[in-house]
Amino acid sequence: MTEMYEYQPHRLLRKRVRDIASGIEGQLMAVITEGVNDIAYIRKSDGREFTTAAANVQAAGQ
């Protein structure tokens, strides 16, 4: 069985965002569908990236 990965458009790509689950802020680098889930990749100010559910992403400062 092969995994399907597909990049998704998102209105906040390359913008400063906040992960509502952890409270961490960073720049939204990509949203990818992995199987049935949309995963957001966020780059923190230290350059490291982390993932969260795309539904957890909101513009920073909200």
Results as ranks from 00 to 15, higher is better:
M1Y: 09
T2D: 14
E3G: 01
E3F: 12
M4I: 12
M4A: 11
M4F: 14
M4G: 03
Y5T: 09
Y7A: 10
Y7V: 06
Q8C: 10
P9T: 08
P9Q: 10
H10K: 13
R11M: 08
L12N: 08
L12C: 07
L12H: 10
L13H: 09
L13A: 04
R14W: 02
R14Y: 04
K15M: 11
K15F: 07
R16H: 11
R16G: 03
R16L: 13
V17W: 02
R18V: 15
D19H: 06
D19V: 08
D19M: 09
I20Y: 00
I20A: 00
I20R: 08
A21M: 01
S22G: 03
S22Q: 06
S22E: 03
G23M: 14
I24T: 12
E25R: 09
E25K: 12
E25Q: 15
E25A: 12
G26M: 00
G26Y: 00
G26H: 01
Q27L: 08
Q27C: 06
Q27P: 00
Q27T: 09
L28F: 05
L28V: 02
L28T: 01
L28R: 03
A30V: 02
V31L: 08
V31I: 10
V31W: 04
I32V: 15
T33Q: 15
T33M: 15
E34K: 14
E34L: 13
G35R: 02
G35H: 02
V36R: 11
V36K: 13
V36M: 10
V36H: 08
D38G: 02
I39L: 12
I39E: 03
I39A: 07
I39Q: 03
I39S: 02
I39C: 00
A40E: 09
A40F: 13
A40Q: 10
A40V: 08
Y41K: 04
Y41V: 13
R43H: 01
K44I: 04
S45P: 01
S45F: 00
D46C: 02
G47D: 03
G47H: 07
G47S: 09
R48K: 14
R48N: 09
R48V: 07
R48L: 11
E49R: 03
T51A: 10
T51I: 14
T52Y: 08
A53C: 02
A53T: 07
A54D: 05
A55W: 06
A55P: 00
N56P: 05
V57W: 10
V57G: 03
Q58C: 06
Q58L: 11
A59G: 08
A60P: 06
A60M: 04
A60I: 11
G61R: 14
G61L: 15
Q62F: 15
